[in-house]
Simulated assay, not measured.
Amino acid sequence: MPDNSTSPLRALTPYQPNKVLPIVFAVLIALSLSIHTFQNFRYRFWRITFFLFNANIVFMTGWILRAVFSHTPLNLPLYIGQTILIYAGPPIFAAAEYNILGRLMQYVPMHTPLHPGRVVIVFVYLGALVEALTGAGAGKMAASTPGTDKYINGGTLIAISLLLQGVVECAFVSMVALIHYRCAKAEMLPRNIRIVCFTLYGTSALVLLRCVFRAVEAFTTYTHSCFSGYCGSTVTNEWYLYAFEAAPMVLYTLWLNVFHPGRFLPRNSKRYLDIDGRTERIGPGWIDERPMSLTVADPFNWRNDARGGQKYWTSPEKYTVCEDGSFALGSASNTSAAEKKQYVHRAV
């Protein structure tokens, strides 16, 4: 008799899972992770892009589990694990953008509407909330039967997380666009800032594309018609998952490898671009001397100046000019070799 153990009708998915594509995407993500790790060591940029490293690990593990699951489509623990990890990867990828925006804001503080540290914290906290809702929802769905209260509750949590992530991404893009506009208006838009801004636009578009796909999938999954036996094509056709979930996130991580922020922004958070758009100086950085209670109650410091009331960039003569070149002119670098060369030059 034929073996029907892998029949789609008896599996946990409405289709026979592809056995090759999960391996392909796991390898692609592993390759991107290797490149990113190398670049982080080269530019010593771990503090800014560690979320990208973590996201690659989570997403890659999810596709590895899916590759194993494709051979045992009745294995519930594997199904739950790959579902949660694949869902959890994109919100962590999005968090990588927030730190990059924070470093850009520190680089051009005169065009930053709010305290960079506070903005990053708010975005990261919202991202953490998205991650928590996504994980909880995916876990409930994977461990329950369609149509049950537990399944519907899980779907509701995922729908809320998708909506929240979409709103956060739109707010993020608006913040990048505002800084981009202010730099252009002040004629402080060198090549490195343009590249960082367009990179953030592109990666955010990929995250939003994934959100739209998951929202459509959620809508077609949680309808009564789906529970009664008919689901939309996004649920019953696996290729949507690879086209609108796997591929955008792989492009996301490859994009940040090609245009790694460590090539275009200084590692030192106190290093900023002067108003001439070429010279870089070492300033005092953003300092909030308020009591902890006030920073919690008013994280953006609305009570005083929204940017912290420091405006140290208005007195550039007080701060040292960076002698190792300029990221705006493409003559500075975060590599240890560049700093060693500069040290030898000073010693001579």
Rank of each mutant, 00 (worst) to 15 (best):
E169V: 15
E323L: 13
I152Y: 06
I282C: 04
A205S: 13
L12H: 13
S174E: 13
C322P: 00
A306H: 09
T253R: 07
R290G: 00
V344K: 15
R103N: 00
G62R: 01
M141K: 12
A218Q: 12
T221F: 02
H111A: 04
D276W: 05
T223E: 04
L21E: 12
Y43W: 15
P109Q: 09
I193P: 07
S228L: 15
E245R: 09
T253P: 05
L273T: 03
M60Y: 03
L251M: 12
A88I: 10
C211K: 03
T112S: 15
L74V: 08
I282K: 11
S331M: 10
P284M: 08
T234M: 08
V58P: 02
I152M: 08
V216I: 11
F59E: 01
L208M: 14
A247P: 02
G166W: 00
P17K: 14
N56L: 06
D288S: 14
I282V: 13
G232W: 06
G262R: 02
W286P: 02
I29M: 15
Y107E: 00
C226E: 00
A171L: 13
A11G: 14
I92S: 05
S34L: 13
R182K: 15
A306K: 01
P266M: 11
G202Q: 00
W63L: 05
R214S: 08
A136T: 14
M1H: 03
A332F: 13
L163H: 02
Y98R: 10
P266S: 10
Y79H: 04
Y319M: 01
I80W: 03
I23Q: 11
A159E: 05
G283W: 09
V348S: 00
I160K: 06
A184V: 07
G283Y: 04
S269G: 10
R290T: 04
L163D: 07
G155L: 12
Y98H: 15
Y125C: 15
Q342M: 13
R10L: 14
L209I: 03
A347P: 07
P266Q: 10
T199N: 09
V130M: 05
L273C: 02
S315T: 06
S225E: 08
S331F: 03
V20T: 03
T234F: 00
V167Q: 02
V196D: 03
I282L: 15
S7E: 09
G308L: 04
A128R: 04
F300R: 13
F227T: 14
P91G: 14
G330W: 05
T221K: 10
K185I: 08
A55D: 03
P77K: 10
